[in-house]
């Protein structure tokens, strides 16, 4: 109990000096690499993720090809130096496989798969630095990379974490330190424009009465993230556009 009380102090500040409803600083960039069809880099606080998208291209495994939709193939991996204790291997462990599947499910909800029959889209995410909210950062990075690749999506898909501090106050975007100190973590993946929740995952338990407010907080976070991503996309497109001459960067 004492650990939980420390999550937010008396004057309403969290361990890293944020308020309960504040996100960590998000910085992102699209088109970091030249070889993939789309790539993006995102930093949420200290969590750093690179995403690369290849495709749509012909399916590598002919048997898997679907006549009415494309398949989405995802792989999640973490650099061995991404955590404080060095990891043994970058992928293939249970957690990585689970996160790959979750990412694939989330992306299937937004990508217009029926436009590319008999094809495949590869989405690879690489965590360079893990400091809480890895899955959320991966989803956000993948969204940017998919947009960079020019693959049609229904709308932005964003993910955000939220928790309940002091058994009362919902707080947003949980850092690794806060994850360790305890308190439940709710990760949601949502379509912020239509306010649909694609995926929801929770660790530890809290009373059902608290769920609506934590969920609301997380959704709010997703909307905030969407604004930031949208800004980054517009910025990127206007830069590319002004280089090719079809858009004016100043207007």
């Amino acid at each position: 109990m004492s650990a939980k009380q420390q999550l937010i102090n008396k004057i309403g500040l969290r361990l890293d000096g944020r308020r309960a409803n504040e996100l960590r600083r998000i910085r992102c960039k699209m088109g970091v690499f030249s070889q993939p069809d789309g790539s993006a880099y995102i930093e949420q606080g200290l969590t750093k993720v690179l995403a690369a998208v290849y495709g749509p291209h012909q399916t590598r495994n002919k048997q898997k090809a679907q006549h009415d939709a494309c398949i989405i193939n995802t792989q999640f991996s973490m650099a061995v130096f991404s955590t404080t204790d060095r990891k043994k291997r970058p992928r293939g462990d249970r957690k990585s496989i689970e996160l790959s599947v979750l990412l694939q499910q989330a992306l299937s909800a937004v990508i217009e798969t029926d436009l590319y029959p008999f094809s495949q889209i590869d989405v690879y995410v690489e965590v360079l630095h893990a400091d809480g909210g890895i899955y959320a950062a991966c989803v956000n990075a993948a969204t940017l990379a998919i947009i960079d690749a020019g693959i049609p999506i229904k709308e932005y898909i964003c993910a955000c974490t939220a928790s309940l501090a002091n058994d009362d106050v919902p707080m947003l975007d949980i850092s690794h330190q806060e994850e360790i100190l305890g308190g439940p973590t709710l990760t949601i993946t949502a379509l912020p424009m239509s306010e649909k929740i694609v995926l929801m995952e929770m660790s530890q338990r809290f009373h059902l009465d608290h769920l609506p407010k934590v969920l609301d907080k997380a959704l709010e976070g997703c909307k905030d993230i969407k604004e930031i991503l949208d800004e980054a996309v517009k910025d990127h497109v206007s830069k590319i556009g002004s280089a090719t001459g079809w858009a004016n960067a100043s207007s």
Partner: peptide, 16 residues
């Protein structure tokens, strides 16, 4: 020394 060829580099590096 440990080298990891990320799938970000090319889809051929996926999995193992």
């Amino acid at each position: 020394f440990f080298v990891d060829c990320s799938a970000n580099a090319t889809p051929d590096f996926e999995g193992r």
